[in-house]
């Protein structure tokens, strides 16, 4: 039997056609895209948490060195670096907020 024979007037075809899924199904597409958005959010969140954790660990490990530098620089420059550090953290959080892929009201972790 050739492949073309199978797709022709096969008496089983009517039975197969009866159980087919609809050609266009917006609900199905919506369900898939919702899952995609949720997975993207989870991956995104995991990466950002990892980056934040690495920053924190780095800051803790570098604390003795930074203390030494701060003592050498004196009070004014120490304050300047502190402000820059806090500004950097705010910028990081702001970037995370602005580039988030899911609006908070629609957020469902599980």
């Amino acid at each position: 039997m050739t492949d073309s024979d199978m797709t022709g007037a096969d008496p089983l075809n009517a039975f197969f056609r009866a159980g087919e899924a609809p050609a266009a199904d917006a609900r199905f597409r919506l369900a898939v895209m919702e899952k995609v958005a949720l997975r993207r959010f989870r991956v995104d969140l995991a990466l950002r948490l990892l980056a934040a954790a690495l920053l924190l660990i780095g800051a803790v490990l570098l604390a003795p060195v930074l203390d030494g530098i701060a003592a050498a620089l004196g009070g004014t420059l120490y304050d300047l670096f502190l402000v820059l550090g806090v500004a950097g953290l705010i910028a990081f959080a702001g970037h995370a907020w602005l580039t988030r892929t899911i609006r908070w009201p629609a957020l469902r972790l599980f």
Partner: peptide, 22 residues
Amino acid sequence: SDTAFARIVDRYQAPVRGFLRR
């Protein structure tokens, strides 16, 4: 592009669902 992926879903949802249903 989510639009492109949604079109992939639209294009193949029926045959994939049909296959899995069977």
